[in-house]
Write a protein that binds this DNA or RNA. Structure first.
Lengths: 333, 333
DNA sequence: CTGAAAGCGCTTACAG
DNA sequence: CTGAAAGCGCTTACAG
């Protein structure tokens, strides 16, 4: 059916070895005239190399597995896009799997990717994830965690400097005149979100006797419901740092539904800073995770065996939800 | 290095054929005792089948290519998630490629996927896309377009009934008392967005002498800027149907920045209805594309060679941006 | 610089 | 029910 290397060799009157050398520009040299004949034959026949056959023999599939803790989360989704793009610039195809926050599915995906002979494995994990990368190491496949690394895993991690970014957020709200700065996070303090929570605690402890810590599930719905409840009870803080975009968007949604003005009645800063956060109403002030840099470092780590980078800087991007006056709806950056 | 079928056969004292029959439950029967020995040997050695080798021999890779017109668009991203999930339930892995609205990249991705011997190709195209699926057909690989099919392509398409859904949106705004209903769409009228625009025209033509058609790029930034400009010129309509979520979110963002109340001053209905639309401020009334059904039909089409489905129903989901009073921030449905 | 041949790890007729 | 062997389409020593 399909045209094979052997067909091209026959047509060009040469061996399959030579055709392979021409197609791959090596590893042996080929005479210019022979090369021309091979190229012509390949073009005439419409030859397309079978990557599966190549993968089996050369032990390089050209494919990398990307395991996502949850694809519905815009922050993870944005990270995934950047990783896919970084992989493409390394000539790799991306096998994508969405675990939907299910650790067992995360593990299964990683194993199926390994069975598919991926050249590397990138895992965008959230807390609660199993250590899937260690099995990759056992199979001799390079792996990297992005955003979060499960306990006891030794695979390299690429992540931002959560401590510095939360400190910047606290300072910024204080500059706006807020003396009490609450923090909204998820049910527990694992992983990056835990670091953010601890950084907040550290930053407010010298100034506030009873820092206000709020918790709800990591979802828009939960955060919206929480804000509406607190509004009804007149228990809302005046300024809050929110651990994740998902919750921050929920906060804005709940505030809108409760008729609460942001930032006048409630100032908000979020800690993910996915592109979506620029077009909320009002636009969300964030400390933006450096998604592109994270993706690039992760992929470099996979293939250039570079050293793990230091924690990456997450810049504060002032928009309207903190009280800054900025041109609305500009480019997200 | 890795354990192979031959290793298992040796350990179990049988042939590779039998091991293969056991691993795949066929196609030949195996005596129960033999099967036990094989299973035990495989477990002891930690055997994991090499999918690449299987793919080469059996001509089935277990992988499907998914070409996305643009992954940054939450509507396309949501569609991609559902397709990935539908593929997983068919036991297929997903090779994901993001064309970033570049037709040439879309073509390249499709070809690389075909070279990788995918078992099928799903293309979530936008207007301007080249016909990449026809090349799949030439290679004997089943393909399907989702959302939009380029001109002259003969590959099956799975899409929603845009006409009916826009008619429902017009009726709904009329029910809210609006007599003039504007429409905001992109620079031209190709594909599904073109159908939506024509359906609007049809629906308002009998009632409005000069229906108001607005255009801007398919981005949040462009729609936000347009709304702010119109607000400054006091040229804003009172009710608008927006062709895409991206633009609708931009409209809300621009309205917020201009201090314009939605829905009181401007009622909005959007036509994609990705999950994100439920948590805008205010929550967005949408005619929701049936993403899950679209994904399921598309995947069934690929593997069960089912007949192309009729245009799918897109239900109107009343939220707050049209003027309805609904519990805010409920589940997105 | 080129060709004949082995081999990647499987599946699958074929023969028994 | 089982085994010996061919072959999927490539790459890569090896010999010339």
């Amino acid at each position: 059916m399909a045209v094979t290397l052997a067909d091209v060799a026959r047509r060009a009157g040469t061996s399959t070895a030579v055709v392979s050398y021409v197609m791959n520009d090596g590893p042996r040299p080929v005479a210019a005239a022979t090369r021309e004949r091979v190229l012509a034959a390949a073009a005439e026949l419409g030859y397309r190399p079978n990557r599966i056959a190549r993968a089996l023999r050369a032990r390089v599939s050209g494919v990398v597995g990307l395991v996502l803790a949850d694809a519905s989360n815009p922050y993870f989704a944005a990270l995934a896009r950047h990783i896919e793009q970084a992989l493409e610039s390394h000539g790799k195809l991306t096998l994508l799997g969405n675990a939907g926050f299910d650790p067992e599915r995360q593990r299964q995906l990683a194993e199926r990717f390994l069975d598919a002979q991926v050249d590397g494995l990138a895992v965008v994990s959230s807390d609660g994830g199993l250590d899937v990368a260690t099995r990759a190491a056992a199979a001799g496949v390079p792996a990297v965690y992005v955003h979060h690394r499960p306990d006891r895993a030794r695979t390299p991690l690429v992540a931002a400097d959560n401590e510095a970014s939360v400190h910047a957020a606290v300072e910024h709200l204080r500059w706006h005149g807020h003396r009490r700065i609450a923090f909204l996070t998820g049910p527990d303090d694992v992983g990056p979100v835990g670091e953010r929570r601890r950084a907040w605690q550290e930053a407010v402890a010298p100034h506030e006797r009873e820092p206000r810590l709020l918790r709800c599930d990591f979802s828009r719905a939960a955060a919206a419901a929480l804000v509406q409840r607190l509004a009804a009870e007149d228990m809302l803080p005046r300024a809050v740092i929110v651990a994740t975009d998902e919750q921050a968007i929920g906060v804005l949604s709940g505030a809108s539904a409760a008729g609460l003005a942001v930032p006048d009645r409630l100032a908000v800063i979020s800690c993910d800073g996915a592109p979506e956060s620029a077009y909320t109403a009002p636009s969300l002030t964030v400390v933006a995770q450096p998604l592109e840099a994270m993706a690039r470092y992760a992929v470099d780590l996979l293939f250039d065996r570079a050293a793990p980078p230091p924690a990456l800087h997450a810049p504060l991007i002032p928009r309207r939800s903190c009280g800054c006056v900025v041109p609305a709806a500009g480019p997200p950056g």
